[in-house]
Design a protein around this nucleic acid. Structure first.
Length: 450
DNA sequence: TTTTGAGTTGTTCGA
DNA sequence: GTCGAACAACTCAAA
């Protein structure tokens, strides 16, 4: 007899409230269920490897007593609960639409065994921060003010009476995970809580004091690198916020604001679940889009002939990560210059990013498309050349990810079409005329609103 | 209650 | 070269 702790977006042992909830009932069975949805082998491997590698490390963290199951949680969790004689199943609440629906179904399938929700992957549970009249926010700045004023708990204390039950994994599953974790992914971040905390300390010591001035620079190691860990819950935002309590000034404030964006978009998605794939605002329902598979494929592969776009898309394919500034530029290019629906790009990012957060990803894309909250004005079309010159001033990011251009001078690397084709090592001409397609996008926007 | 002004991430054009 | 205006429409907070 003992409780189940079912981990999903909380692949960690420290600052995990569900453990403390479960500990008093006896030996705790800690389980992760590999949902076939998570294991789709047709798309980017980095995502799956990142999960597998963190699961392996997590097994060590739990002294080898981590249970793996594979299949539909609606069946697997009740089955394991019966096997372990669990009196409760503990989870941290999921607020993404599909996950929340899955949890309700599991709750039902569990029958008399209660599914107990403690905490969430957020500092403040989505739905908690509201306007004085009780309605949810749709604009970021007032949300973030109210979110800060609401505050959050300190990190959870590790239970000192925790007893772990045995590994009840299905035969062969750990072998599958081990095989999946193997392989060369250059620049895959250091795995597990140890890796996360080492990286965080390095950022707080060295990067934080330059964060607000350098965070937009893809050519510098200017970001905290926490997003892949936040994605799997290897680290909880509450832990990071607690560390920043003692810091002060513009850089800390800016970092907290970035965490607030993650919470804001989770809140928006919680209140508007259909906005995962549908326009949050219907104003652009009549917008004309193209269906250009060749152009979209060139975008996916990083062969558009536009250096900053290609650098970002190649960074994504080879590392499973892309700098935030470049995400905006590549997204803007796909939507505004290739006239493609935001959902196409959002799906590609979900397939390949190791840090893809559903709410942030979908609403980031909606923001660029002009269909989301606090949307970018329609006339704000990123010029990928100017963005490159501004945020990659030495073109070192471009040269690194687009090695065909590594021999060019900086101003040429930003505009490779100005040098003869035989000096570009096969790098293509731009697939579209930037200026012409910018005007096209503005025209289509005006027509859609008329 | 009504009004006013600000609101993550930009670019172009003309003076 | 630099600089301000223009490019919508709507949410929300504060006056």
């Amino acid at each position: 007899m003992g409780d189940l702790v079912w981990l999903r977006r909380d692949l960690r042992r420290s600052d995990l409230p569900t453990l403390a909830e479960a500990a008093p009932s006896g030996p705790v069975t800690v389980v992760f269920v590999i949902d076939p949805v998570l294991w789709d082998t047709s798309k980017g491997t980095a995502r799956r490897r990142w999960l597998a590698a963190n699961l392996l490390t997590l097994r060590d963290t739990y002294e080898g007593r981590l249970t793996l199951r594979q299949g539909d949680p609606r069946r697997e969790i009740p089955r394991l609960a019966r096997e372990a004689g669990a009196t409760h199943v503990h989870i941290s609440a999921e607020t993404e639409p599909e996950g929340a629906a899955r949890d309700r179904a599991v709750d039902e399938a569990l029958g008399d065994v209660p599914l107990v929700r403690t905490g969430s992957p957020y500092a403040v549970m989505p739905g908690r921060v509201r306007k004085p009249d009780g309605t949810p926010y749709l604009v970021f700045t007032p949300f973030s003010k109210a979110w800060r004023a609401h505050g959050w708990r300190g990190p959870a204390v590790d239970p000192d009476d925790l007893e772990l039950d045995k590994d009840r994994s299905d035969e062969g599953l750990w072998k599958l995970v081990t095989q999946t974790a193997e392989g060369d992914i250059p620049e895959l971040p250091p795995v597990g809580e140890e890796g996360a905390h080492a990286r965080w300390e390095q950022f707080v010591d060295r990067g934080l004091s330059r964060y607000s001035s350098e965070r937009d620079r893809p050519d510098l190691p200017s970001t905290s690198g926490m997003s892949p860990y936040l994605k799997l819950g290897v680290v909880h935002p509450r832990t990071l916020l607690h560390d920043l309590v003692h810091g002060n000034g513009a850089d800390v404030d800016r970092y907290v604001t970035e965490l607030a964006w993650r919470e804001f978009y989770a809140d928006v998605l919680h209140h508007h679940p259909t906005s995962v794939w549908e326009d949050l605002r219907p104003e652009l329902a009549r917008m004309a889009y193209d269906d250009g598979p060749d152009l979209v494929e060139a975008w996916r592969q990083g062969r558009t002939g536009v250096p900053l776009v290609d650098a970002g898309m190649r960074q994504l394919l080879s590392t499973g990560w892309m700098h935030n500034r470049v995400r905006m530029v590549t997204a803007s290019f796909l939507i505004k210059h290739l006239h493609t629906r935001w959902q196409v790009g959002a799906q590609h990012f979900l397939d390949y990013l190791i840090d893809a957060d559903l709410a942030s990803n979908q609403h980031g894309w909606q923001w660029v498309a002009g269909t989301g909250t606090d949307a970018a004005p329609y006339f704000r079309v990123f010029n990928p050349v100017l963005q490159g010159e501004k945020f990659d001033p030495d073109a070192s990011y471009i040269r690194h990810w687009v090695p065909e251009l590594s021999g060019l001078a900086t101003n040429q690397a930003h505009r490779p079409w100005t040098v003869p084709a035989d000096a570009r090592n096969g790098y293509p001409d731009p697939v579209v005329d930037l200026d012409a397609e910018r005007h096209e996008a503005l025209d289509r926007h005006q027509a859609a609103r008329a």
